[in-house]
């Protein structure tokens, strides 16, 4: 984990209230696994806490890493003013990413993302594709304006997009698409709102795979105990709680209470 003033390499609007920020710095060489996040200090000075943004693309050879964010409040609003060349105080990489060592050549990975949970699946998909897996993505968004990275995911394999209101792609949830298409897979990787994670877990009771959780965080490195969750089986976990920032944000399926 490092603290660095990273340089903004590029910054662009990619969907309604959603931006892609490419940062440049030494820290980009320290990324260990897809699904890790950067903890970013809002540039305005008035806000104390950092904002956890998951890494959507890692390019260590260029010292670049890409994060996507949706404007939700003051902190993310402040980020929108950044221009190339500006610097941003970043702590990272944080958390445990998606373990992919067990995933084998020739297997199929289903990436299922909802809204701003989609970004970490992109780097994951890139790495899985490189390992020789077949990658299928099911991406859910609220409506047409919110859709992003469809083309990027298409480079990895087959992509299905669903919107809550049906204004783009299929109408409905990612779970609807999976059953309509009768998608089969060896690995399920998912990130998004809790109801989506819960529905997917229910739909695929025996699947192998991992989920990534979102939560409001304080420190991001396990000290403040703001972002805790409960293990499904405390006895098996050997502890009564997990810190999402430090023990997660990625957990095996059926490991935590949703």
């Amino acid at each position: 984990m490092k603290q660095e003033n990273m340089r903004v390499y590029s910054h662009r609007h990619i969907a309604e209230q959603t931006y892609e920020l490419v940062l440049e710095g030494e820290l980009a060489s320290f990324l260990q696994a897809p699904g890790q996040f950067l903890h970013i200090k809002p540039p305005g000075g008035e806000l104390l806490l950092r904002r956890p943004l998951s890494i959507a693309k890692a390019e260590p050879e260029l010292k670049h890493c890409t994060v996507l964010y949706r404007v939700e409040g003051k902190g993310t609003q402040q980020l929108t003013a950044l221009s190339p060349g500006d610097t941003l105080n970043v702590l990272g990489p944080m958390g445990n990413g998606f373990p992919i060592a067990e995933a084998q050549l020739g297997e199929t990975a289903l990436l299922t993302g909802g809204g701003i949970g989609v970004p970490p699946l992109y780097e994951l998909g890139r790495q899985l594709k490189q390992k020789g897996l077949r990658v299928v993505s099911v991406l859910g968004f609220s409506d047409r304006q919110a859709v992003f990275y469809e083309e990027q995911f298409r480079e990895l394999g087959e992509v299905f997009v669903a919107t809550d209101d049906g204004s783009y792609g299929r109408k409905g949830f990612v779970t609807d698409v999976i059953s309509q298409e009768a998608l089969s897979f060896d690995w399920l990787f998912t990130c998004g709102p809790k109801p989506m994670l819960a529905a997917l877990t229910e739909q695929h009771k025996a699947a192998k795979g991992y989920i990534s959780l979102e939560e409001r965080m304080g420190c991001g490195f396990g000290a403040c105990l703001a972002c805790v969750c409960e293990p499904l089986s405390p006895a098996r976990a050997g502890q009564t709680f997990y810190k999402i920032c430090k023990d997660g944000p990625v957990f095996p399926l059926r490991e935590v209470k949703l």
Partner: peptide, 25 residues
Amino acid sequence: EDRFGNPTPRVAETSSGMLNAIGLQ
């Protein structure tokens, strides 16, 4: 005894400050 503390969200940001309700976990 051990304590789990309060449900989440446990932190909220304010201008130049933060609110916490961890609950002595």
